[in-house]
Design a protein around this nucleic acid. Structure first.
Lengths: 256, 256
DNA sequence: CGTAGTGTTGAGTTTATTCAATGTCGGTGG
DNA sequence: CCACCGACATTGAATAAACTCAACACTACG
């Protein structure tokens, strides 16, 4: 078996594969196996991080992107009072640091939620590679665009107000993101704390907790600490509104 | 005077210029005047749109990006009940449609708020030009990244909860965006209705209205229908929190 | 001049928050 | 091995914030 490469995930955009099969991933986007080697050569494979470790801090100079190989990451920024505001969670296959290309320094802090391994992709070198690898540029643009798309969805969601809608949409999003990595969409781990969920969704911790309980009473899910099972994804999807489906699923329509 | 070009705005990222002076705009980003002509040649200059006209509809095939030359645009999506959720406003110099690169079709509807002129930039041709124009690719990536950055800010803001914070941050954002185009940061036009602001900020119309009134009582601003004057931008900026400054201003620090 | 669209203001209700208490898990040290 | 501690999670009760409903005001426009 070949070394698994984080950059592959970067380019493939959640193809359905558990282990990184190169030809599966790159051919469909027009990148040959030879080119994959070039990509691989610029990627740093960091040793695993542990809960609380930082990938980068708010204000650090932009070095490159990070691709989650396993585990999960949150990104947040601190306001003047030192309060933390979570702006995103990243699961395997997802890319961190895209917002820093523009200003040349990271404007969030990225920290690891559990034992996590990531690849570091130096951005300058990646940009240079676009000259050698046809199709790479297009993939990068698509990647960025997708992030914009997801964020739009988040804005719409947070404008949706009700706590139930937000929590439901959040869960459906996690579910579909797990699914797109070939993992179970029904049962997974909440690597983030209730407080982190609350911060992300703009709710109080207690509200998140109560909403979980209410969903559980309605038999929509079963949750115990970090472990969660979605019993009725359709119902949750309905509660969450279009956001939860539209926005975090690639091409798929509604779960019918 | 030379024909004004929307694509210039696209590349320059809000340099401080009222009229589009080509050399000002492009040289700093490493694009020569000759290359500007190439860019100009692919841009469609549409006749002005009027309030309510659509640039594109949710679901339309992605053709290209739109750059606002004058006027303003909102983008929103309709949920299953047909309710409108505003996800963004676009002022002169800003680019619309970035979220559609990924999926190949627009997932929001973009509509014009007042008499507005825009440029249409066919995306395929723009991508091809990156081969001829060095630096163009980098600018495109930065552009997308900036959008991600702004959206992150919006997510953080909407997680910030309080109506006052949201409205204040919104106004400061508009202010600084006007400022960066060389227009007054103190007094400008709210081309969007209260309902549109409310939808964008996830508030009720009445709450927006009341918040305006409260700010006015505190002498932070003067608002009458569409016309607004910010009397104390610092104070508003403080209320809005880091988001309002951090997130919508380029390199500048707080208004000191 | 009257009407429709939009914005403001008030009163009551709903929702989510805050504050406080209690419960649960996981680790550490006696 | 068990008791204890701290971090995290849940639940309840009181409070505060924003929402809904409803009335009214202003402007634009025919």
């Amino acid at each position: 078996m070949r070394k698994e490469s984080g950059i592959i995930s970067l380019l493939k955009e959640r193809a359905n594969c558990k282990t990184c099969n190169l030809s599966n991933l790159c051919l469909p986007v027009g990148i040959s196996e030879g080119d994959v080697d070039k990509l691989d050569s610029i990627v740093h494979r960091n040793t695993p991080y542990h809960r609380g470790d930082l990938l980068y801090k708010q204000g650090d100079r932009f070095r490159g992107l990070y691709v989650v190989k396993s585990g999960s990451v949150k990104s947040y920024y601190e306001d003047r009072e030192g309060l933390e505001h979570v702006v995103g969670f990243f699961l395997p296959g997802e890319i961190i640091g895209l917002e820093a290309i523009h200003s040349g320094c990271y404007n969030c802090t990225a920290t690891v939620l559990e034992t996590t391994s990531v690849c570091e992709v130096p951005f300058e070198q990646l940009e240079q590679l676009t000259e050698e690898i046809p199709g790479l540029q297009h993939q990068l643009l698509r990647l960025l665009s997708k992030e914009v798309h997801n964020d739009c969805g988040m804005v719409a969601l947070l404008g949706n107000n009700s706590a139930e809608q937000r929590v439901a949409a959040f869960l459906v999003s996690l579910s579909s993101r797990h699914h797109s990595r070939g993992l179970s969409s029904r049962e997974f781990n909440l690597s983030m704390s209730r407080a982190e969920i609350a911060s992300y969704l703009g709710l109080a911790v207690e509200t998140v907790s109560r909403t979980f309980s209410r969903f559980q009473e309605k038999n929509l899910l079963m949750v115990e600490r970090k472990n969660i099972q979605l019993l009725d994804i359709n119902a949750l999807s309905d509660i969450g509104g279009q956001c939860s489906t539209e926005l975090h699923q690639r091409s798929g329509r509604r779960h019918a």
